Amino acid sequence: MNSARWVPFSLLLAGSPIVSAHANPAPLDEVRLAQCMLENTTSDEESVFKDVMVAALRDDNDALKVSLDQLSTVMMDLALTKCEVALSALATPQFQTAAGLYGQQVGEKLMKKAFEKLN
């Protein structure tokens, strides 16, 4: 999946004065951050992913927009509160990559659970 689709808030943060004040954030380890976010994902976060998936499958653009906004909030919250990422790092390409990896991994996990229910 395209990480830009999972992280629509990154463009909004790029022009933020808070982010601009920290022009040189420490580089992120994308794989490590994605793993940290995954390890801290609860059923509440998974529910947000499910909402995104259902809205996308139903071609419900309004619900998809709302769900993607909620998903962005979930990812930012996990990164900031559970994985010790600085606010300034949220606007970096490394965070976008990590968010894409995280989204892919959670999506695969949810699909695996869904298919297990079919057996």
Rank of each mutant, 00 (worst) to 15 (best):
A99C: 11
A91Y: 10
D69R: 12
Y102C: 02
V66K: 08
A89T: 14
G100R: 10
N61K: 13
A89P: 15
P93D: 11
L101Q: 11
A86K: 14
Q94C: 02
T92C: 01
Q96M: 10
A79G: 05
A89Y: 14
S88L: 12
Q94E: 15
A86V: 15
A79L: 00
Q94F: 01
F95D: 04
L64S: 08
A99I: 06
Q104G: 13
L78K: 01
L78R: 00
V106N: 02
D62F: 03
L71D: 00
D69Q: 12
N61T: 10
L90G: 07
D59F: 13
V66I: 07
S72G: 08
C83I: 03
D69N: 12
L90T: 09
N61W: 06
A89E: 13
Y102T: 00
D69T: 08
L80E: 04
P93Y: 01
K109C: 08
A86Y: 11
A91R: 15
T73Q: 07
E84K: 15
L80P: 01
S67E: 13
G103I: 06
T81G: 02
G103Q: 14
A99Q: 08
L78I: 01
S67D: 10
G100P: 07
L78Q: 05
L80C: 07
P93Q: 12
E84V: 03
S72R: 03
Q104N: 14
L68Y: 02
T73M: 08
G100T: 10
S72W: 01
D69L: 05
D69A: 15
L90V: 05
E108Q: 11
A89D: 10
K82Q: 14
Q96C: 09
Y102V: 01
D62E: 09
Q96Y: 04
C83G: 10
L78G: 01
D59R: 13
A99E: 09
D59K: 15
D60E: 05
M76T: 15
S67I: 04
D59E: 13
L87D: 15
